[in-house]
Amino acid sequence: MPLTIVLPDTATRDAIDDAIAAAELKLTNLVAESPTHPRQIIASSPLGFATFVEDARLGVRYVVVDGTAAGEIANRLEARLGSIRWADVEARATSNTASDRAWALRYAVAFHTPERAEQLLVRGLHDSDLLVRRVAVVALPYALTAAVRTALAQRAKAEPDGALRAKIDKLVDDLGRPS
């Protein structure tokens, strides 16, 4: 079972390179950013591999660790790089500050647990703040549950901001309208 560690802002590229060395991993591949893929740094050892993802669209970094010693590797990486906890996301999702709520949406989807992110995304689509709603629209393809699809289709009719409404419409078309 792959393990995901969502990395804090302090996990710079230098810090990631240092953590790779500390975890006794070696670079095995570097995937450049493309329209369909975020930049990825893949490092491995005989005991497992770690895929660091630098998602420029979301503005988040996370690492997915897999292999026979995934837990051990993940612990070493986390010890060097730190991590964002789900509790941090939940706490900031209910903040009075729009930037905190937007932050929570970006990081919620990085955990790769759509069922946990679903509720936050649906709530974000209906947030009173335009910034938060925009971030929700960017983030929701990462956690596309049935409930999120339905919420998105509904929001297409209710979104007051014209530009965002057009974006939602296009997204709904691209994803296919819920039956």
Partner: peptide, 18 residues
């Protein structure tokens, strides 16, 4: 540059991309 980083890693020289 990515290729150089990978080759450096294979050769045991890699520290940081920066």
């Amino acid at each position: 540059r990515d290729g150089i980083a990978l080759a450096a890693s294979r050769a045991g020289y890699f520290a940081r991309q920066s």
